[in-house]
Nucleic acid binder design. Structure first.
Lengths: 180, 180
DNA sequence: TAACATAAACCGACCGGACGGTATAGTTTG
DNA sequence: CAAACTATACCGTCCGGTCGGTTTATGTTA
């Protein structure tokens, strides 16, 4: 078996899971439903991901990989580079089907332990963020605001309207770029 | 039936549900488990809350009531009063068993629609926050940072250490108090 | 190239357990 | 007794995971 073939099935499965999560909610991710969405049988899915835990952690891993990739696309010498990357990740996910946060929620609800890779990633990022600046509290406020935005989108909480939201993001960007 | 009796049973049930959510995760809130934790039978619980939806929405309602009460305890003439109340809610929930956010997560996973009361409440709060200040973006950044803190605690995400966290909260308080 | 061997990829019936909800019988209290 | 409330047996459904079997891809040998 060429590994590309396997990756393709895996990717198809993961994106099916994301599609279901976005369309019907994180709680509706079941093995059968994902298999059907991905166009294969339950057995076939379980061949690729032997347990549901494996499926969910695969989902999270894929999201984290995408996140990391986007972080690295931020110009090398940008001040508060990591922070900026986080913000862009959130903003970008508005136009993409499926979403890191959705996977997080699905994962956390079924088994909090699965979030450990995310915790590790965030610990790294936080370390970089704090070492990128001398204004730790300022950076942290921006960081939490970004996370807040994540969950606002995820849970469809009110955002004060599109233009308010625009101005907030503008302000956030300014705050980040002014960090030293 | 004396209403106090009913309220007591109801409260016992809800706090049992919170206890389970905090101890074992939001996904472990089942009717049987909650009944056992509350010291009554499944039938007894279903007499008080005829469906699981009712239980969850009761949980959310109780949390929202507590939140609102705490909001009102903030001095009448404090600038950015609502925002300050939100922050205190988050900080206080560190010392209380059970937690608004946990209920939110449990609710969202099972039925996103149940979050509607929360959305309404937040819409109100956002309106007050924006009318309390002339610096809308600044207020919103603080608002999202507070929400971010909520979810950091909920998902046990890293926070950069206790002292960093302390300083961030300090900064956040300063930001809020400086709003006009 | 035909015949066979081997293993990867996949299928889908089935099982067992969990859970939400019902029905009903029992118990307490006024 | 009646109303309020509790307890428990039970049902239907859903879901995760198993398992035996089938197809498909890849050699291998004569």
């Amino acid at each position: 078996m060429p590994p590309s073939e396997c990756r393709n099935a895996s990717r198809r499965i993961l994106s099916a899971a994301r599609a279901i999560a976005t369309r019907e909610g994180a709680g509706r991710i079941t093995i059968e439903a994902v298999a059907k969405e991905a166009g294969l049988s339950k057995g076939g899915l379980l061949y690729n991901y032997p347990t549901k835990k494996a499926l969910l952690s695969g989902l999270l891993a894929q999201m984290l990989a995408g996140h990391r990739e986007l972080l690295e696309s931020v110009p090398e010498r940008h001040p508060a580079r990591t922070l900026r990357g986080h913000l862009e990740t959130v903003l970008q996910s508005e136009e993409v089907d499926g979403d890191l946060s959705m996977a997080i929620l699905a994962t956390a609800a079924s088994d909090p332990q699965l979030l450990d890779p995310l915790r590790a990633e965030l610990t790294d990022d936080l370390g970089r963020i704090l070492s990128d600046t001398q204004d730790a509290p300022g950076a942290m406020v921006a960081f939490w605001a970004i996370q807040g935005l994540r969950f606002q989108k995820l849970l469809k909480l009110p955002d004060g309207g599109a233009d308010t939201r625009e101005r907030v993001i503008e302000r956030l960007r300014a705050l980040i770029d002014d960090l030293k």
